[in-house]
Amino acid sequence: MPDPMRIRAQAAGDKTTVRVLMSHEMETGLRKDAAGKTIPAWFIQEVTAQLNGKPVFAAEWGPSVSKNPFLQFVVKGAKAGDKIAITWRDNKGETRTDEATVS
């Protein structure tokens, strides 16, 4: 089971800034371990965000994104109390969804 994300969503006027920290190894598949064996690629491929269940953001990621990635984006029209849900799926098919309340 992957570790939880840290999500913060702060409204200012009609714009809400969402900050997400994801816990992921993000292996490129190009590195070798101490024994010289290639470490298999393992990275997040798909990130989506939903505001009260409605999709507002989708991204396709690759192996060039850093370990434990940080994502920030702005959503229009969210109000305090609204729910922001973030989902990622990696190349192994593993997925994690976390939710935060807009403040």
């Binding site: 570790d3 939880p4 840290r6 900050r19 920290l21 816990s23 370990k67 434990n68 940080f70 920030q72």
Partner: peptide, 14 residues
């Protein structure tokens, strides 16, 4: 620039 998203937070939670 990185201050806002310090991954140390993930370790704090853990």
């Amino acid at each position: 620039m990185l201050e806002d998203g310090n991954p140390a937070e993930l370790f704090e939670a853990k």
